[in-house]
């Protein structure tokens, strides 16, 4: 564990708490893409299936349980409890165009041709693109509630900090993980536009609005 990875994981944790806070406080999931949340649940389930096969640490186990549990809870909130506030009309990204290439890529580019390694690679590829429905929805709405932008910032910063963690681990331990590195780079890259607007508007006290 190093400071970059710990901060990244805490940002990831924070992003989920911000999202839960947004839904509970406003009693609405308006502006949140159900498709992205569904993809995250799939990402966590396919990646953390190793919970049953390997023991890493108490930290690792608790985090995995939290991420699986909270992602399923968010799916429940959006699909059942606050279903009326969910707006599928704006959530139009075609996730099959994401799922199929990720599944194919996982079959071809993995560390071992075993069910667990294929699922792990799939989860890493899928995580890289899972934010696309959300960003697509944001684009269509043209604006976002401030708390939603804090959620997105924390979520994007998490993978960005993992990049620093990987640089550090390569230098300190000779650690190499090409699959996670390339996917993580793509994932962070998708946030570039968002980070720019977040920095120039939200952090200066303005509303998050996209130029018309």
């Amino acid at each position: 564990m190093n400071i970059f990875r710990l901060t990244a994981d805490l940002m990831h944790l924070a992003s989920i708490f911000i999202l839960l806070l947004k839904i509970q406080k406003t009693r609405s999931c308006a502006g949140i893409s159900f498709k992205s949340q569904l993809l995250y649940a799939l990402v966590f389930i396919t990646r953390y299936i190793d919970l049953f096969f390997y023991w890493v640490s108490l930290y690792n186990t608790l985090m995995k349980i939290f991420f699986i549990g909270s992602s399923l809870y968010i799916v429940y909130l959006m699909q059942v409890k606050f279903r009326a506030t969910n707006d599928p009309v704006l959530d139009t990204f075609r996730i099959e165009y994401l799922l199929a290439p990720c599944a194919l890529l996982a079959l071809v580019a993995n560390y071992a041709f075993t069910a667990q390694e294929i699922l792990w690679a799939f989860s890493v590829y899928l995580e890289a693109g899972a934010i696309l429905p959300q960003l697509f929805m944001l684009q269509r709405r043209g604006e976002a509630e401030t708390i939603t932008t804090h959620y997105l910032f924390a979520l994007g910063a998490y993978r960005g900090l993992y990049l620093l963690n990987w640089i550090y681990r390569y230098w300190a331990e000779g650690y190499v993980d090409w699959i996670a590195w390339i996917a993580g780079l793509v994932q962070t890259g998708l946030y570039t536009d968002f980070f720019y607007i977040y920095y120039t508007k939200v952090l200066k006290g303005q509303k998050f609005e996209l130029p018309a």
Binding site: D50, Y54, D177, W178
Partner: peptide, 10 residues
């Protein structure tokens, strides 16, 4: 060895 049989990151 390329990659790991065991992933310690989240």
């Amino acid at each position: 060895k390329n990659g790991k049989a065991h992933h310690d990151e989240l």
